[in-house]
């Protein structure tokens, strides 16, 4: 029952990050990261709370597959312009951020809508 407020308040973040999920921005080479560790801290640092364990989105934007460019990703995480709480270097190091990004890059494309009968009725 407490969903509504949160869904509304996270709308801005969804717009801000969600766009990248649909159209990849021009990218620079992201720093090398450990996807396995990224998956672990994606959960332990609470990213999953808004974005889901598979980064599929929820109150927060869908982040993967095809995440936005690392520079934009990093900038938003450190200094969000929407509802997302800021993750400063004191709580997520640059190395950890790279690991999270590597995890997002490792997520594969979902099955097509047409291949899932339950979504076609």
């Amino acid at each position: 029952m407490r969903y509504r407020t949160l869904v509304l308040t996270f709308t801005t973040m969804a717009f801000a990050l969600g766009a990248g999920a649909y159209a990849q921005a021009p990218s620079t080479t992201p720093p090398a990261g450990n996807a396995q560790n990224g998956k672990k801290i994606f959960a332990s640092y609470g990213c999953y709370q808004c974005h889901g364990y598979e980064a599929q989105g929820g109150p927060g934007a869908r982040l993967a597959p095809r995440p936005i460019a690392f520079a934009a990703f990093s900038r938003y995480v450190r200094q969000p312009t929407g509802e997302m709480p800021p993750y400063t270097v004191k709580v997520v190091s640059d190395k950890e951020l790279a690991d999270i990004y590597a995890f997002l890059q490792s997520i594969s494309q979902p099955p097509a809508v047409k291949s899932i009968p339950l979504l076609n009725n």
């Binding site: 979902p110 099955p111 809508v113």
Partner: peptide, 23 residues
């Protein structure tokens, strides 16, 4: 519909999958 495909086979189960199975 497209959004529901993401994490379709995930565990824990996605809320979109739950909704589709229930429907």
């Amino acid at each position: 519909r497209t959004a529901a495909t993401y994490a379709w086979d995930a565990s824990p189960i996605s809320t979109a999958r739950l909704g589709a199975e229930l429907w």
